[in-house]
Computed example of a mutant assay.
Amino acid sequence: FRKRDQLVLPIYWWVPVGLLAVPLLAVYLHIPPPQLSHTLHSWKTSGKFFTYKGLRIFYQDSVGVVGSPEIVVLLHGFPTSSYDGYKIWEGLTLRFPQVIALDFLGFDFSDKPRPHHYSIFEQASIVEALLRHLGLQNCRINLLSHDYGDIVAQEQNRSGRLTIVCACQMEVSFQRLIVFSFSKSYLKMEFLPTSLRPSESELWDMWAGIQNNNGNLVIDSLLQYINQRKKVRRRWVGALDSVTIPIHFIYGPLDPINPYPEFLELYRKTLPRSTVSILDDHISLYPQLEDPMGFLNAYMGFINSF
């Protein structure tokens, strides 16, 4: 009798849990996405789309100063988008004749197919396809990357299909892994250590972009890049070890993923030829949003040094 009770209790315990979970899951899957703010809506309407293998990819393309032979391409991080660069955009157009950024496949305003095998190799191919679409595949390119975009940049350098003049990273890709849940609350927690953190409206914009076009349903597929990084670590770290172009790292000491000073010591050991800019003590994971002027000063100092 006791054995039978012990078997029955767990079964009945799961019944109400299951009955509660099903409607909650249904609500989550059908919850309407947040409304786009005026600024984010303007970013979307000022952008364009091109087609890659039947998929629509969102991008920004702005004309800047005349005279320089080089362009700059921004590669955004995870789980955000090209919109991360909106505070530094005008500053970049004052230095480069053309400034380009895209939303990788599965992010913000680009298509988010499911099921789909998202990969860093595919994202790198999309960058190359965009430059061909714009007739820029033979131009001299400066890569400005962040987080997830760093790995794409490493693949671009490894493939050798683009003429990359220099690369600047806002956060390198061999960071410690952390486990987190994707919600607006997470985005808030990520910035809690900073005093020049993105505003409430900027955090909401991030969340709106993630949720756009049912993006919450592809997050788990996009996260497979972590496994890809483990599998092809030698290829991408090798791209860093053998790099011949100038490379620079802009670092916020309050970065919760890559803690100071341990991470900086590891970075300098791994890339002794790379130069480094360390921003103010209160700058964290998104320096281009937290301190756009400090970031631009560091980046332009690097660009103008050669």
Rank of each mutant, 00 (worst) to 15 (best):
T194H: 04
E265V: 13
F109E: 00
L144S: 04
K230Q: 15
I278Y: 10
E90C: 06
W14G: 12
L102Y: 09
L136N: 04
L254W: 04
V8Y: 11
L192E: 14
G85D: 12
Y12H: 07
L24V: 06
I210K: 00
R197G: 08
T163V: 12
F180Y: 14
P261F: 02
S125M: 14
P259A: 03
W13C: 14
A124K: 07
L94G: 13
G294F: 10
T93R: 13
L7V: 07
F174N: 07
Q154K: 09
G91S: 08
Q211D: 00
A208Q: 00
T163Q: 13
W13T: 15
F49K: 07
N297F: 06
G149D: 01
V22N: 01
S62G: 02
E190A: 14
G85S: 15
Y286D: 12
Q98A: 09
S242G: 08
N157C: 13
F174V: 10
Q288V: 06
E202P: 02
K269F: 11
N216W: 00
E90R: 15
W236M: 04
V172E: 11
D111R: 01
V66S: 13
L55T: 03
V63H: 14
D108Y: 02
C168Y: 03
G67C: 11
D255E: 07
I71D: 11
P115Y: 10
I164Q: 03
A129L: 05
I88Y: 07
S37N: 01
E122W: 05
Q211V: 01
I151T: 13
Y186F: 15
I164H: 01
F107Y: 10
R2P: 01
V17M: 13
R268N: 10
Q156Y: 09
S110R: 06
H117P: 05
T163D: 13
N227C: 10
F78N: 15
I210C: 01
F295Q: 02
R95G: 08
G215I: 00
G85E: 09
R273V: 04
F50V: 00
R4D: 04
Y260K: 12
P33F: 00
H116G: 07
K269R: 11
S221P: 04
A153Q: 06
P113M: 03
L74M: 13
P113G: 07
G238R: 13
T45A: 03
I226A: 15
R2W: 11
N297R: 15
L217A: 04
P16V: 02
V8M: 15
